[in-house]
Every structure is written in structure tokens, then in C-alpha cells.
Amino acid sequence: MKPVWSSLDTKVNSRTRAILMVHYFGQPQDIDKFLNFSRKHQLFLLEDNAHGHGGSFKGKELGTFGHIGISSPRKFLDIGDGGLLYLNNSYEEDSLPALNYQEQETNGGQIRKYLNKFPVAKHKLKLFFKKRPEYENPRAFREPYAEDLYLSRKSSLLIDSTDWKEISKLRRKRFVELQEISVHGGLSPVFENLSNESNPWCFPAYAKDQEEAIHWFNWGWKNNINVHSWPTLREEQILKEDNAFNRWKKLICFPISDQPYL
């Protein structure tokens, strides 16, 4: 989940323009190393904080360290939209695209929010009408393409009014609880230690093999807990069947909810 720094210098050449820093699952990378490396080689630092909105590093908000950063608060709130773009260079205001708002929620979004008020009934309907997603199939999920995604004013207000420090504190507590449960269940946590400034998106762990991972997917489906795989793989990664693909087969992610599992 982090670069092999000893070999990274040899990868840089005259065509290299940027380095990407991803805070996987909301766990901050070694940001000082990324900053020093990008300065040393005069590279743009692109920061992907889609998994860790609300987290920080040395008191500074994640997503704001790179020349360009992104964050995804919608992964933590009951909203269908809401992404953030951070620009740390100076830009002329009229050179940036105008921010558009979508005032009306889609019918699907309204139905989802209504059903969320009745979780038990929603779960029974799901078991009756749907099959468990094929989390073990690397080709099952592909990100949908959209020409434009609008940010609703309602979502914008919710993002701004949320107490992210309090949410982060609670989610770190749930993360530690899940860590204890996973070890007791024979799983291997991806991270030995959690940053005390992070806002974890989920709890990742490795099963012994894909068969055991499927067991956990089935357990989550029956108990209304969205245990899932991650990430979506490119076709060339699937065909190579390399170490990364073999690790993907064993990786399972537990959602972090407001309530403890036990």
C-alpha cells in the first residue's frame, strides 16, 4: 500500500511529470517522503484522498498537500454526490469551470433515503429480490461513466455542517473494534497501526485464501453488513495474475458503521 522508495528513483526520467499519493482506506501515506521526493525531482504531487475525507496529518487536512488533491465526503454521508477538488497553485478565477448545482434529487436517491429509514425491511427486500454481488469476480464491477456530476446545494450544506473531527474519532474507535474481531476470526489486518488523525473509510483485512474471503462475503450478505472486495481491477492486471491480483483475491473490506458489530 506504499511505494518501494529504494527503487523509485530509477523510475524517474525526462518524461516523468507527476507522482500520485493515495491514502488507501483513509490511512495517511508517509507524506513527508512524498513531498521530499516530488521536490527533489521537480514533480507535481497528485493527492488522492477519496478514502479519507476529514482526516489530517500533523494537523493539516488530507487532500491539501498535493499540487492537486481530491476528496470524497459522500463515502461518509448519506448523499449521492459530493466530491472536492483542491488546487494549491494560483489560478485565474475565470479560467476554472463554473460550479453547477442540481437542485432536485433523482428518484433513485429519494427511494434509497426513504428505505434507509427502515433497515430491517430494506434488508428483507434485498434478500428476496437480489442476489449477492459477485465480489469475488474481478470483472463484476466497473465505474459508470458520466459526462457531468452535479453537486446539490443540500449535499454541499451537509458537507460543510458536518463535524468531521467527531466522525473521525468515532470511526477510529470502530476500526479498532473491527481489528480485534478480525484477528479473533483468523484474518490479517492490512494495517498494524491506525493513524490517530485518520478518518478510515472501511476496515481492510486479508483472508487466508479466496475461499475464506467468499465465506465472509456470504456472512455479510446474510447479516446485512456490506462486506466487499476492493478495488476494481484493470483487465491487464487480471490477465497477468501477478502478486497484486493474488492479494486482491484475499482482500475483504468491512464497513465502518455508527454502531458496533457486537
Rank of each mutant, 00 (worst) to 15 (best):
L77F: 03
K75E: 09
F76C: 07
K117M: 11
F65L: 00
A98D: 08
E61A: 09
Y86N: 05
P97Y: 09
L85Q: 09
S90M: 12
S155A: 15
K124I: 08
F76N: 07
K131R: 15
E105S: 01
K124V: 06
P73M: 04
L170N: 11
N116P: 07
L99N: 05
D160L: 14
L85V: 15
S152L: 02
F76K: 11
F141Y: 15
L62Q: 07
N137S: 06
L151R: 06
G82P: 06
F65G: 00
E61C: 00
A121C: 06
L62S: 07
G80F: 11
F65A: 00
G108F: 12
S90A: 13
S95W: 11
P119W: 12
K117Y: 10
L127R: 13
N137Q: 03
R74L: 12
W164F: 07
F65H: 03
D160P: 02
P133A: 06
D81Y: 11
E103T: 09
T106M: 10
R142I: 14
K60L: 02
S72K: 10
L87E: 03
D160E: 13
A121E: 08
N89I: 05
E166L: 14
I68K: 01
G83A: 11
E136D: 09
Q104R: 12
L151E: 03
K130A: 09
T162G: 00
G82M: 08
G83C: 10
F65W: 01
G108H: 13
S168Q: 04
L99Y: 02
H123M: 09
L87R: 03
K122E: 09
F141E: 13
A98H: 08
W164Y: 06
K165Y: 04
L99V: 14
T64Q: 08
L99F: 04
K131D: 12
Q102G: 15
G59Y: 00
K130H: 11
F128K: 14
N137T: 01
R153C: 00
E105L: 02
Q104T: 12
E93V: 12
E147W: 09
P119V: 14
E143L: 15
E105G: 01
Y150R: 13
P133L: 06
W164P: 07
L99P: 01
E92W: 05
G109V: 13
E136C: 02
I70H: 10
S168K: 06
H67F: 02
S90N: 12
Y145A: 14
G83S: 12
D148P: 00
L170S: 11
K122W: 06
G59T: 01
N137L: 01
D81K: 12
P97I: 15
L170R: 14
L115P: 02
P144Y: 10
N88D: 04
K126D: 02
S152F: 01
H67N: 08
H123K: 13
L85P: 10
D81L: 10
G108S: 13
L170Y: 04
S161A: 06
N88E: 04
F141G: 09
F118N: 10
N107W: 14
Y145L: 15
N100A: 14
L96R: 11
K117R: 15
E143N: 13
P119Q: 09
L87I: 13
E143P: 07
L127S: 04
L151C: 05
F129A: 12
R139D: 07
G108V: 14
S72P: 04
E105M: 01
L85F: 09
L170V: 08
S168P: 06
P133Q: 05
G80I: 10
K169W: 05
Y114K: 14
E143Y: 15
Y135G: 01
